[in-house]
Design a protein around this nucleic acid. Structure first.
Lengths: 364, 364
DNA sequence: CTGAAAGCGCTAACAT
DNA sequence: ATGTTAGCGCTTTCAG
């Protein structure tokens, strides 16, 4: 099966593919031992400049690239990081990934990436894959960080990881996020400040996102502090996009909200689109605030009011923290980065009359 | 330095980290040889069901994950694919990456990802990294695919790769893309059909993108076929965003274009923003067409007219093709996927009067 | 059906 | 300053 035909020492063939030169080939060509080649490659130990030169020459001529597989097997380190994110289609995660790469590349680490499509089940297989590949550490966004068997197992096995976007009070479980609860509270305060008394929330499946849940809690808390005790919260599965129907039902009610907080920007944009379909004007009839601060939000019309989180910087921070942990230089703690309520044009004062649909089912 | 303390056979420690169990530990626990464990893991060769059961039990109890590093070293295959893209911040590449992952994951391949920030120099180091990691194949978007030493070297070393987005006539250099020239020609025809005679193009650095160059050629060709021989082409470095100044100069001319083709959507969106700053209305004063079909385009106001390319499907196709090549089942050829001129609201008939700035420098 | 053993490419301890 | 050698975890002949 494995047909390695050594035509010459330099051109080894595996099936139809050329096999890359090894350290041994380099050693032969340079007339030194493989140990010396290794020393030169890694610039450690001692060797004469002249020797190094011969080795470098052989390396260049052979187009030799050290096989990190061999190195990893020997050193029990791969200099690679495993990244698990829900999706790359949502710019908030793509931006975070860009930040992750910024720092990882800089530090000489490779990134292996997996996505879960927001499924807790996929998380299991994704992590399994990453760990089979013996990544040195993990950057993870999980559906739920507080009661999570998977994370418990990582803890038990002492596998270094940093959560990204997730927020948890579990001691020793380190994460990089904004303060979702506080941010959502500010959103409520903003609505109240604009005179809204009937405010609601549209959230993705809270079961699939502890962030969404934290934002809901903060929002309701904020409303409550202002004496608003009841607020409709609708959960939409925006993969299947039943947003319009859910909103149609919501606004059929005469006491429908005059302000909507959406648990993320992608959702907010979908909501604004749905409201347009329902002939409900933003912000004249209903104010909308999103969460994430993806750059699209600034480009749509009207420009989206949102809670901005520094996604790229969060990615960078997560890797820095992970690398600190790997080098034993860090205590495992939570890092909270500052958010910012970014003003836009989807928010305004309460409308004179209610935004209720007269005959909801008749609107297309 | 390397302090492996074997407290028991099951809990080996490296520094402060637990070392994962090996096939040898599993073998001891199951009372078989490592060869048998290997057979069971890979379900090949023959073994008694009862034996397999004991092995599986040991695997489960130890939470054993086969070390793919060891496997890769032995088999000279990693079941990983290297992906090199200019950036993940541009949704067009993030979408392609999502497609890449769809198929790679399905086929049991891991993806290692690197980005080049549109720099040809970074391409060298990125590929070096990927190849040092001995990925089985590469998916690449390069600045320039036709005269490219790097690709020549990959060819010489018989390293399997598939280009994505790049389009080249070089035989044997396989790539997945749309027909950029034809698509751009259609854009010109559309403008002509709307009555535009003065059409221009805004393009990213063509040196950094053979796609941009192909689109420019097709566009000019299309105009020429309609008897329009001169068209301004302005190149902008949209990383540094000098778009507004460049456009201000362009529209200072009384014979300024009434239609602009932008070489990609991110640029088109920036151009529309800049035009707004300059008080030039889209589409009343100037029509705009982009390229890519990123989903943001449909959300901005006015909704962007653009050439849609099936990014996610392109990513999927690239991986499928690469896997075919890896298994020797494919000829190395180009795959052209269909594009589609997606209608939007940024295009309209020629305005009555010219869109020339009266006193350009005085506009903010 | 199972085990013993070689060896993938590399690093690092130990010689010299 | 350099060479020799063991062995990282695994697959795969080759024996039995």
């Amino acid at each position: 099966m494995l047909s390695i035909i050594a035509t010459t020492a330099k051109r080894r063939v595996y099936g139809r593919y050329l096999l890359a030169p090894t350290i041994k080939i380099v050693a032969e060509r340079a007339g030194v031992s493989i140990a010396t080649v290794s020393r030169v490659i890694n610039d450690q130990g001692s060797f004469r400049p002249a020797t190094a030169e011969r080795v470098q020459k052989a390396i260049a001529e052979l187009n030799f690239r050290p096989n990190v597989i061999g190195r990893s097997l020997r050193t029990a380190r791969t200099r690679s990081l495993g990244v698990m994110l829900p999706s790359l289609s949502n710019p908030v995660f793509a931006d975070a990934m860009a930040g992750i790469q910024d720092v990882a590349k800089e530090a000489g680490y490779t990134t292996v990436i997996t996505n879960t499509d927001y499924s807790a089940e996929e998380e299991l297989t994704a992590i399994h894959t990453l760990l089979s590949n013996r990544v040195d550490g993990l950057i993870l966004t999980v559906t739920q960080a507080t009661d999570n068997e998977l994370l418990d197992r990582l803890d038990a096995e002492k596998i270094p990881y940093v959560l990204l976007y997730n927020q948890t009070e579990r001691p020793g479980r380190c994460a990089v996020s904004v303060d979702n609860v506080a941010a959502a509270r500010e959103v409520a305060e903003r609505f109240i400040g604009l005179g809204h008394r009937r405010a609601g929330m549209v959230t993705g499946m809270t079961a699939a996102s502890d962030r969404a849940d934290a934002r809901r809690r903060g929002f309701l808390e904020g409303l409550r502090s202002a004496g608003v005790d009841r607020a409709p919260v609708i959960e939409v599965d925006f993969v299947n996009m039943d947003v319009t129907e859910k909103l149609r039902d919501l606004f059929a009610d005469p006491s429908a909200p005059s302000a909507l907080f959406c648990s993320n920007d992608a959702l907010a944009i979908a909501v604004i689109g749905a409201l347009r379909t329902l002939k409900i004007r933003v912000p004249e009839d209903v104010s909308v605030i999103g969460f994430d601060g993806i750059s699209i939000g600034e480009l749509i019309e009207p420009c989206l009011t949102t809670v901005e989180q520094p996604s790229r910087e969060m990615g960078r921070t997560a890797v820095r923290h992970l690398l600190d942990i790997l080098s034993g230089e860090a205590t495992r703690d939570m890092i909270t980065l500052p958010h910012r309520l970014r003003p836009g044009a989807t928010t305004g004062p309460v409308a004179a009359g209610p935004a209720v649909l007269q005959n909801p089912r008749h609107h297309s």
